[in-house]
Nucleic acid binder design. Structure first.
Lengths: 140, 140
DNA sequence: ACCTACATCGTAATTATTCCTATCTAAAAA
DNA sequence: TTTTTAGATAGGAATAATTACGATGTAGGT
């Protein structure tokens, strides 16, 4: 998913593309993740009066359309980012900050030996931290 | 960690054991996880006037002492449970709060297909949420 | 029994998120 | 073109989780 594809989805679904919706969507062109507060602050620099209601309403709209995904950070604040299509888990290097995506989701691939008491998994979080190969070899 | 060990930690650290702290701690004897709201409601049945301030302050205190651990559920509400000390990952039922431990750690067992750019994993977090088998069958 | 540092209560403040209503806008209908 | 209408927005109030605060209470040592 990228911003261009997102516009196509909106057109196909007959969803009005308002200036607010454009501005909000364009923020995600850098493929980073943002909190609702961060988004509102950025938008208000150029568009004073941009309402929180509008921010949240359209973030949720984009999530329903599959354009964005929402994840809950450990501090309890929601973060939004472009939907990569498949969900991803990341290894984060604590030395250089680089994020490395895992090639697949171990939950989807049934790599876990789940006890019988587990019924259905509706949400999961897998986060890996450490030192990337380059940092270990002193190449950075 | 169990409730008896928790009392020892509190004594060793010279932390006052008040009736409120006792009541709060005893709730975790069943080894389930609870939200702050659930805890406050339970306590107020027997102890009207139990303050939210006291609930949160002591939950955080117990977390700092290593007695409890806090995890963030997908809805952004924190859940607390006894700290097992050992390296375990859990499935948490969002309907009844039951925690089911995974039998092994998939990281330690090398179940993950890690990209070459990943060097060494020094910390990881794996949290599963959903509905346990009993809740799915309506047995609770 | 008496101090005193720390706990608690009751409540107010804070923060993220959702809801409400009047207003606005763009497209369809007349 | 004018009117209608469905949907969108602004602004602020409401809600819910969490944290902070001042006055009062109490556990544990002396």
């Amino acid at each position: 998913m990228n911003v261009r594809e997102a516009y196509k989805i909106l057109r196909d679904k007959g969803i009005k593309i308002t200036p607010q919706r454009q501005a909000l969507l364009e923020l995600f062109a850098d493929e980073k993740s943002y909190t609702a507060r961060e988004i509102a602050e950025k938008l208000r620099r150029y568009y004073p009066g941009f309402s929180y209601d509008t921010v949240y309403r359209n973030l949720k709209l984009y999530c329903r359309c599959g354009i964005l995904t929402e994840t809950m950070a450990p501090d309890g604040v929601a973060r939004f980012s472009l939907n990569t299509g498949q969900h991803r888990h990341y290894f984060t290097c604590l030395a250089c900050g680089e994020k490395v995506a895992l090639e697949s989701c171990p939950i989807e691939e049934n790599k876990f030996n789940l006890p019988g008491k587990v019924g259905t998994i509706t949400y999961h979080r897998i986060e890996l931290f450490g030192k990337c190969a380059a940092c270990e070899e002193g190449k950075k």
